[in-house]
Design a protein around this nucleic acid. Sequence first.
RNA 1: CUCCUGGUAGCUCAGCUGGAUAGAGCAUCUGCCUUCUAAGCAGAGGGUCGCAGGUUCGAAUCCUGCCCAGGAGGCCA
Length: 551
Amino acid sequence: MKAKINALLIKAIDLLYKDNDFSIEIVKTKSEMHGDWSSNIAMIVAKKKKENPKELAQKIIKLIPSEDWLEKVEIAGPGFLNFFLTKQGNLNYLKNLLKDKKSYFPFEESNKKNILIEYVSSNPTGPLHIGHGRGAAFGSALSNLLRKCGNKVTEEYYVNDQGLQTKILAESVHKKYLEKFDLDTSEIDDTNFYKGEYIDELALKIKTQKKDLYLKIENESNFINYIVEEMMKDIKATLENFQVKFDSFYLESFLYDASKTKKTKVNEVLEDLKSEYSFNEAGALWFRSTKFGDDKDRVLIRSDNQETYFLSDIAYHKDKFLRGYDELINIWGSDHHGYLPRVKASLKALKLSPESLKTIFIQFVSLIRKGKKTSMSTRSGEFITLNQLINEVGVNAARFFYLAKKSDQALEFDMDLAISQDKNNPVYYIQYAYARICSLEKELKKREMTFDLDEGINNLEKLKNKSELEIISFLEAYKSIIEQCYKNYEVHPICFYLRDLASKFHSYYNSETIISDDQISRNAKFALLIGIKRTIKSGMELLDIETPEKM
RNA sequence: CUCCUGGUAGCUCAGCUGGAUAGAGCAUCUGCCUUCUAAGCAGAGGGUCGCAGGUUCGAAUCCUGCCCAGGAGGCCA
């Protein structure tokens, strides 16, 4: 409908000015006094052409032909054009939705892309905590949306499976492991060690499974790999538990692997940057990132010969480009925002287009328990793991709480509120609406009545009361919400929409008896319910939240 | 010190690519279960949109300054 109105307006303006370069808005109205759809076109164009908005609006109206779906167009306020649709016009969307045998989805990208989306990528030095959970929920939901809109999407987790931090992790575990055998570890300097409970648990697991095999470590890198694998097992299990499914886990060590090719991918990057963009200073190798807009130059290889994570990150990003994607998406914690300029600088140096890389930052999650804020730190071991959260509030509620807030805004996760499963949880409210519709269908069968969808579709005109008309119109708004989310790489508006839709349904349910004796009107009402049901299902599937048929 | 986010109802947040009377949920108060699921509904109260200027027909939205909160600025990740 929006597209139809848009076409009429563009044509009218084109006739008047031979110009259609305007960014106009066509929105669903909030009040029925303003009709069904509203446009600010007259005010936008009037400004550019220095005319009076109301007079211009008058001219535009004269150029709008009569259409069977259009009742009338009015001018209101400072120059809004308000479109009042005929009954037919308003029913178009719902009819299409109901006629589609498959699951209806209101938007499809015309220029389909092959997208790589990287998220979570938590270091395997500890279990996932509630901060990672937010990135996981958002990344998976956004992937669903991008895919549902017609794109090919690959979800990837980048694993920093080597380097200094994994070494420290292995040492931390090993110390605990030694202590399990009552060995004296007081000589070991553990100031930088990881301290969480999981270290102790892992040490115990190793003792149980491998006995005294690692009392003396013969091959350090093998031991590190072993520990990292154990951590990743745990992380993967948590992700699966949380409805997050990755297509690939990309190992950092692969970038240093020379077994298949002569040169490692990291070495290739070092050559790419050689002499022109890198230099030696104080025993270290630097990347001249200032040449590409970064604040300062960055170290690639430290004076102790240790490669920085930045170096392998460059190689990783280069590899992403070489794998042939149209678009790369990174979902990073907001503490990495200072990191982006140097990555973009490296892309420019490698003559790869930084515009193809879209980075979305996820703000911190802090935890509130019994009114007290808890700080999160992997190293000190003070955190709530994602597993704990799932166990306490459930996957569905956890996902919804994460997704219902704009991702670039800090989130205060109130455990006590999320734990309370009784009433405060908006998830149940939406699920309940869905279950109620399912329940009505069951009740219908129980009373040995039938539902004929085609008859319902053909009699939608019979739906006349206020809440029915409002819902019919609101169902169409789903399309705009999806388009907006798709365009802006966000998902929280879906949460708000579903809540509103559920609310309108509950209200309707309470004001009307759905199962009536009049077959025609009953079918029409059930057709409307099916529209609601499919829309809720569609939205919840994007969020990966369950829609039980019974509660 | 520099940069990035944010400041909207008692609380948690939408709205921010300028538009019509600033919206939800929770909490509070008043009603509604012999009737399709009360995990629900109907109604009420609650606001100097951090402060001050500016841009214009119009500003919560854009610009500038200030105040407050959080974050980033390493040969840490």
